[in-house]
Amino acid sequence: MKAKATVAIIDYGAGNLRSVANAVTRLGYQSVVTDKPAEVLRAPAVILPGVGAAADTMTGLVRTEMAETVRRLMEDDRPLFAVCVGLQILLTTTEEGGGYECLGVVPGIVRRLPDGLKIPHMGWNQVTQRRKQTLFKGIPDKTNFYFVHSYYADPEDKSVVAATTDYGLPWCSVLVKGNLVATQFHPEKSGTLGLKMYENFLKMATGGE
């Protein structure tokens, strides 16, 4: 059997790279964990993992020249899957750390979850599908996915909100814009249906069956 395409996983000095790479491997794809822009730009599909604080993530991306690389991927509408903080740093600014400028490729603000709740929002919560998406193929509406975060993305253009999750208020848990897919939850920690979402993305990206 011919090996499937090689997926680039962006390494910017943070993130749960191993778990993401394991998920890609499990789906039968090759993966390369890389901090080299050229390698990322060559790949048919790219995953931007995310764990931790937005400020650290931005610092790491700038240091490795990945901030520019991610902007280029967006400009050229290349297949990109951003996870958790990876989603958040696509927006214009975040309230985290007293306010911080992000990549601004998706106009909007990253806001703190409301007070009076347990924070971080940690555990499995339902993802309500707002638009029909190839990404959701084989994934029932209101499936539980695994979240761990204290901030949420509030994009200006509501048409990019493909799914929402309710914690304090309903907010964007899946963002789709052209070939960009971004989830606030961690597909690599969300069991079989989390893997299914990566698989749907990778099939779309590589034209595979």
Binding site: R18, N22, A23, T25, E188, K189
Partner: peptide, 11 residues
């Protein structure tokens, strides 16, 4: 943990 995380996709 390395071996488990290859097979188990949960926290």
């Amino acid at each position: 943990v390395e071996r488990i995380s290859e097979e188990v996709f949960m926290p």
